[in-house]
Design a protein around this nucleic acid. Structure first.
Lengths: 127, 127
DNA sequence: GTAATCAGACTACAAATGTAATCCGTTAAA
DNA sequence: TTTAACGGATTACATTTGTAGTCTGATTAC
């Protein structure tokens, strides 16, 4: 049976994004990355990281004096789970209904739409 | 300038979905709808509804003894806002990157994909 | 070697969220 | 008409989240 993944907050997602980009990293590496795009204090980032460890979403290597951290789940797994619940809540369950709205609202450019067409066409048909 | 819309929690979204489906509705109407798909107690639903009123996301008509409630923002407006922040956080910013993953991961059935193709093709080209 | 620094551990604290219960006046049922 | 049920207002309380600060032992710079 699949263990269900712990839920993570918006801020925690930012940490995870950094770790998914590259791992393992020290707390300082992560702090450095995030200070470029947020205004969080180092201690704040550290707290978020520690919480992810508590939640068993991030692992720690304590062999060296300065710990390193790494994700325990793939980004894809989290993206899937989050997207599913998001789409259910916001669009009543189907990705399609979301897309229809986006296409109709011109949120997607013509170029985007063309690119999507070609992605869809490249998708091999299953038997 | 656009007033920025108040953020609402997951549970509050469920309430809003009921109100967007039909409005105005009494608290009881809403409670009735939600008891079909959640296990929330009536008082819980009432609390969530009251919070939405405080947040100025839901309006109240107090002319009658039993109040009626109605949304103050369109569903589309909320969907757009939520989707934008969701996609930024989860997929690094582009709807396309999300779609690409969904298409490639077989999350979509062949039928879905065919339907998407036809939605994309129906989209009128801009000049 | 001593002082400033740093990493990790622990603590803090308010706001938001989830999940109701109580209180109180009114209305509806018996 | 007394009483139970109901709607709205108020209150409750634990957990999660956002946002750090303090304490303590190790280390590094002088």
């Amino acid at each position: 049976m699949e263990k269900n993944i712990p839920s993570i907050s918006e801020s925690e997602w930012e940490i995870m994004n950094v770790l998914w980009d590259k791992a393992p990293q020290t707390a300082n590496d992560i702090i450095f990355s995030l200070q470029e795009c947020t205004d969080w204090k180092p201690k704040t980032i550290r707290t978020l990281l520690d919480r992810l460890v508590q939640k068993d979403v991030v692992g720690v290597n304590k062999n060296l004096r300065v710990y390193t951290f790494y994700p325990l789940y793939t980004q894809e797994k989290y993206q899937r789970a989050e997207t599913e619940s998001f789409i259910k809540r916001i669009y009543g369950g189907t990705l399609k209904s979301m897309l229809v709205q986006f296409i109709q609202e011109d949120t997607l450019s013509d170029d985007d739409i063309n690119e999507l067409r070609s992605i869809l066409n490249k998708k091999p048909k299953k038997q």
